[in-house]
Simulated scan of single mutants.
Amino acid sequence: MEQHINPRVRDIQISGIRRFFNMVSDIDDMISLTIGQPDFPTPQHIKDAGKAAIDGDFTSYTHNAGFIELREAAASFVKEKYHVEYDPATEVIVTNGASQGIDVILRTILCQGDDCLLPGPVYPGYEPIIKLCGAYPVHIDITQNEFKLDAALIEGSLTPSTKCIILPYPSNPTGVSLSKEELKEIAELLKSRNIFVLADEIYSELTFDDSHHSIAEYLREQTIIVNGLSKSHSMTGWRIGLIFAPEAISRHLLKVHQYNVSCASSISQKAAYEALTAGKDDALDMKIEYKKRRDYVYDRLVDMGFKGIVKPHGAFYFFVKIPDHILLSSFDFSLALAQEKKVAVVPGDAFSPLGEGYFRLSYACSMDQLTEGLDRLQSFIQS
């Protein structure tokens, strides 16, 4: 019966990040610098709120968009932090993680034959959904632009079929973000065009040298923001994402969301309310620690002789160019590193073909693990 499965599903692959992680995870004494998951526990007061929700029998369906107090807290959070304003009654949707939010957004706006522009290299979770919609992912090469997708690169890639542009900043896999001025230039380019912007801002609370800015400040009516609590509050398993969009768009997003999952977990929603109110600054301590790790990893990579290292502005990744004298593909380089030195990184080609020749290193792990992992990487490079 496999031949009768939707061919669009047959043609997509499991994420290269997960495939490589699964391939090397059973090797003993492996130091994994792969998965983008915070190594901090969920703050205790948030866990207590989840327990209280269970004990208080808050275990039924909520409104499809999430219970109203949570949507109010979410709207207040982004207004205070990022200066964008949304009506919690009609312009905020709580999803099962940012991943489901991305799926809902793309399935709502994309049609057969549309082009969806996105940077390359980029997180691999967008392309399969674009293809499942019958649309075309168009990767724009950002490797020669310090991993930034700017207005000039976008303008050179626009076609009459362009329906959506994805701005995933701070970026997975590069850690790069866009400045206020760069976002304004993109907004100025797009404001007279019927093009949506999907702003994936899941790492918005993990920026190190400047505050996060959203393009929705300058292009509200065309922008759909997806965010969530997985990275900011170390709540990956709680599966809480957030969509912010103008009411004229949001009411259609809600239909797709409703038929997809009905609503996010009520228990997780209660925990999320605690995170966005009493815990609205929980990310600060994590951010301080991530910045220390970022600076340490940067110095080590430079000392090892890696060229062209772009210092991340946020998130917890480095995207590193494999030295020219090492004549291996990104996959073979990463596999050899895992087999010979027991250090796991993610091959760059997992982030589109434009990531070939690079590898992604996550520093969402302890300093002890980072130190040992980088010592092993240095030994591998030298050998």
Rank of each mutant, 00 (worst) to 15 (best):
I142Q: 01
K51C: 09
D375L: 05
P88H: 09
M304W: 13
V197E: 12
E146C: 10
L301A: 14
T95E: 03
E372C: 01
S230I: 02
S192N: 13
E205F: 01
S25T: 03
Q112A: 13
E221F: 03
R360W: 01
T159M: 04
V297I: 09
A89L: 03
S230L: 05
Q222K: 04
T371G: 10
S334T: 02
N22L: 07
T42Y: 08
T90I: 07
L189S: 08
L370A: 10
D200K: 05
D324F: 07
F351M: 06
D285A: 12
P312S: 15
S366Q: 14
F67L: 14
E289Q: 03
E274Q: 10
G241W: 03
V122A: 15
E85T: 11
I249C: 00
T143S: 09
D29Y: 13
D11R: 12
H212M: 06
S32Y: 00
E80R: 03
L327K: 11
I54V: 15
A152P: 00
F351S: 14
E80Y: 06
D285K: 14
A152Q: 02
P121T: 08
S214N: 07
G357Q: 11
V24I: 10
I267P: 12
H233Q: 08
D299R: 09
I130K: 08
K307W: 10
C116L: 12
T223C: 14
V84H: 04
I68Q: 09
D141F: 11
P323C: 11
R8P: 12
L354H: 13
G308M: 00
V310P: 10
K231M: 15
P41Q: 14
Y363W: 04
P38I: 05
A73H: 05
S266Y: 10
D114S: 15
I224D: 01
G314V: 04
S234L: 07
